[in-house]
Nucleic acid binder design. Structure first.
Lengths: 332, 332
DNA sequence: GTGAAAGCGCTAACAC
DNA sequence: GTGTTAGCGCTTTCAC
């Protein structure tokens, strides 16, 4: 390659890496030679000396200590697809690709940390399903640059992006009040998850601001069936409710089913508002009014933060909080 | 590291790479030293000499020449999650991680080929959404080891796994006949997709074997809305139909909606059978009877084939065809 | 069975 | 502004 261009390897390297101090004419010659030979620099050789791989890990992580070999639940969730799309959209223009890894068992978490230390990737983007995930702390300890998708349950010095759950829940409350609903309840997520807590608290607070001191709630597990059951419990308690905020769309879908089963029409008898704006929201009949996170934007921001941490290892952890939006559809 | 164990670097290398010819005692000493120092070999240095990265690319590919920056449609499809889960389950025990890449534009396809040539990955697992995808041929030309998820539309020398679409459609036909349905129709996928063709042909052939010479069909685009519309057309044509085979679950979900809209109960008035056993199949009311591909198993086989091709570059392309299964639920 | 030495392809000091 | 040189950390002949 250097021979073809009639210059030294060092000069070729300078041209490829965009270092100034290279004569424009020579630069052109080298580029020409690159184009005709179809030369591509060897990645391994480069990262051996730069100590950078140009890759980042995208880690999907749970807290389970069990031996579940299948990471399907998260993977099958369209939410994950949006995260990946957002990450890719930021990373691809920069020529870096995410390496996919899973970490649901203690063993696989150790593997992930070991890989990162080995230099398979320069840092990690972490999407956890469970609040009690020990991986973030392990990464901090291993001094691996990392960014989380949501605020960790335990406060640890690590960067993350998140959505303002309280504000989102308040949006739902305002909407129900605006629709003139007076007998409102909510189905919340598992209360050991910080996001679920925040959505419940945010909803209750906003309703209180509108004069509704007490909002009954029923706890679900963020699944279709748990939403259906929670709705059943709510209806058993007070059959005359006319509005319900459900902490995610999947549960809202279940709630819709329970309401139909009881002959309550949506939104005429009962207005239903979900959270997430997942694909479930549009697949539902009626389509769900819901709260949308800017997931793709959040994912892109994760990439940005991670690159900052990689460039400047000592950097202080940062959090970036995004504002959710109300998406009005037919259900409320 | 070599110093700590009191042996040469060469010996450490032999132990790590499991080369025989090493004295068991020395082996133990070295392993001990590895454990105490927490030593991990540098990946870049290793692949510089072995010319292997120990990574494979997982490429999601479309045919679009446009500048759509978002690969969401496929990513958001739970089917993709199952593919990834299957690939991971095979790759992870072997210590190799997939690098995620997208290729929907000519530019991004070129980038993928360039990356593979650059040695970012030893080979590629390709999942295409469109039949006319030019990437497989480009990979063949670049002599990059690659395996496809489905048979390419144009015959090219490349390995792939696929499901026996005709057999799956025949399973659906047999089931409808077994249920005593006499006025049967089908909603097929876009007929430029080989899989859609095979499902239609397989269904028609099997119905013919059961004495039904003619089966009306309506073409959809594998989406919810197109399924709904195709069902509408079918109903306009013959309102008395009592069974329908829909070429994928998403369209079947749309068809269910159209049937409900027309006051036809499922499965009493009309039996509905889908294809894919996607998450849509169980989220539906009633849950869908459908044809299940062993997606995870197929994905794992892709990994196996790819590793074979990487180990033995000259190897003849192979295809592995999987048998689908009928999953009986409430809809038919 | 084990060590010594060469070299994978690149970048980065350092001379010029 | 460009060439020369010295490694990056590993695997792998080749002697012993």
């Amino acid at each position: 390659m250097a021979r073809v261009a009639g210059v030294s390897r060092a000069t070729v390297s300078r041209v490829i890496n965009g270092i100034r101090n290279v004569d424009p004419d020579i630069q052109a010659t080298v580029r020409q030679a690159i184009a005709t030979t179809g030369y591509v620099p060897n990645r391994a050789a480069r990262s051996l000396v730069t100590r950078r791989t140009g890759a980042v890990a995208l880690v999907l992580s749970g807290a389970g200590a069990d031996e579940d070999p299948s990471p399907s639940p998260l993977l099958t969730d369209p939410f994950f697809g949006r995260v990946v799309a957002g990450i890719i959209s930021f990373l691809r223009p920069r020529g870096i690709h995410p390496v996919l890894m899973f970490a649901e068992t203690a063993q696989s978490r150790a593997q992930v940390v070991s890989y990162l230390r080995q230099g398979d990737a320069d840092g990690a983007l972490l999407v956890s399903t469970h609040a009690a995930d020990p991986l973030p702390a392990q990464l901090v300890e291993a001094a691996v640059p990392a960014v989380l998708f949501a605020r960790p349950a335990d406060p640890i010095p690590i960067s993350y992006v998140d959505v303002d759950h309280r504000a989102g829940a308040a949006l739902a409350a305002d909407r129900l009040v605006e629709l003139g609903r007076r007998r409102v309840a909510t189905i919340c997520g598992p209360l050991d998850v910080p996001a679920a807590q925040a959505r419940l608290a945010g909803f209750q607070d906003a309703m209180a601001r509108h004069g509704h001191a007490f909002v009954p709630y029923s706890e679900g597990g963020f699944t279709y069936d748990s939403g259906e059951q929670a709705m059943e419990r709510l209806l058993a308690e007070r059959l005359d409710l006319d509005g319900v905020f459900v902490a995610n769309d999947l549960m809202a879908q279940g709630a819709l089913h329970a309401l139909r089963h009881h002959g309550r029409s949506v939104p005429d008898d009962v207005a239903v508002i979900g959270f997430d704006d997942s694909s479930a929201a549009t697949a539902c009949r009626p389509p769900l009014t819901t709260i949308r996170h800017p997931v793709e934007g959040m994912a892109a921001e994760m990439g940005r933060l991670l690159l900052d941490h990689i460039d400047e290892p000592g950097r202080t952890p940062t959090s970036v909080i995004f504002e959710p939006a109300l998406i009005v559809r037919a259900s409320g």
